[in-house]
Design a protein around this nucleic acid. Sequence first.
DNA 1: AACAAAAATGAGTGATTACTCACTATAATT
DNA 2: AATTATAGTGAGTAATCACTCATTTTTGTT
Lengths: 220, 220
Amino acid sequence: MMDPQKLLQELLKISDDDKDITPKQAKIIQAAIEIFAEKGYASASTSEIAKRAGVAEGTIFRHYKTKKELLLSIVSPMIIKFAAPFFAETFIRQVFKDHEDKGFEELLRKLIQNRYEFVKNNVPLLKIVLQEMAFHPEIQQAYKQVFTEKVLPKFKKMVEYYQDKGELRNDFSVDTTIRLVINTAVGFMVTRFIVMPDYPWDDEKELENTIQYIKDGIFS
Amino acid sequence: MMDPQKLLQELLKISDDDKDITPKQAKIIQAAIEIFAEKGYASASTSEIAKRAGVAEGTIFRHYKTKKELLLSIVSPMIIKFAAPFFAETFIRQVFKDHEDKGFEELLRKLIQNRYEFVKNNVPLLKIVLQEMAFHPEIQQAYKQVFTEKVLPKFKKMVEYYQDKGELRNDFSVDTTIRLVINTAVGFMVTRFIVMPDYPWDDEKELENTIQYIKDGIFS
DNA sequence: AACAAAAATGAGTGATTACTCACTATAATT
DNA sequence: AATTATAGTGAGTAATCACTCATTTTTGTT
């Protein structure tokens, strides 16, 4: 099992990941994503992955010591990528510059729209993450670390800032407010792309209504 | 694969299920629930289930033709049980009796509190349902059928009724309103019992805040 | 063209899998 | 008490699993 501290360091250099990758390795990754998403990690066999990738089974184990290492190489980068907006240097700074501050609503709208596009473009991968997180402590811990150390502190500052400004209600605790906002936003995307992907969604309407719903629920 | 129509009929007589069950069979079910929840259906072996149940492996296959049949015998009853409030004859009737009508808020509060207790008492089982629904079309279809035929129609009537009464905002469509309410309620329970079960929750506060949040988000 | 390094191969391996079946133990019925 | 029916057993089976490794193919350097 990987040391969480090392894992975070590992994650931060994901930009290097794409470099020394062979064409066959890329095919393996693509096939693995598809099959893991279709039948789950435990039910996916390395032989089937190799077959779909058009590669000998041994080739998989040239690049990845174990099947689990293949899973982690796919899942791990998503941790940072999903939380990416909160890693941006400019993100928080912009919020607190009064002359640029367009209020919590606009910030929230930008954030949700941005993550909505991200989810839309990474459905199979996020399916894998959601599924396998339940059974792999390494993945859980890595996400927990990123969330508590990177996402949560910035989110807290945001909510506190707008609560002090009187823009957000203060009869909800900061933690509760964050939970409700994230639940609503994530819930929307899970419903939209995983639970009912075939429903004839009016995406623009649902997005705007979701934002309105959050706004009326947490604004003073 | 089971015919969905038959499955629903099967489900409606769950009260009979508990009858002709042997002690060893009960041990098998209990062990299966534990192990399915711990490591997932695909990673759970029948030999391990038999071992934990204190039973010979062959005994499992006396009672269940396949491992999957064992899973379905565990998961299927939860479909009706989770939607149980919507099956109650009195449920809707009470709502529309004006002299008993205490408003959407009280109805919602009762409903969420009730389902909150249910989830609390069935965490491992619901974990299995959430996990395995993704990979077993029979489970998906059964839930879809119960939801669209039993839950959704009643929910729709409720929302329409209170929208007409002017209690609920009508700039959200009925479907969107339902989605937001269910998302928020389910999201709360998933966060509370599955994502962060060890967080020191103030359950009463979170429940009340969640209801307030919904109320402010969908009331006019 | 010759060589070395890296990438890819696929038959082979022991372990584990869901499931079978001939058999025994227990319970119910006469 | 005898007979039948049901419940339980556990060694056995073919299939599949993740993974290995000796060998071949491809790539890069001179």
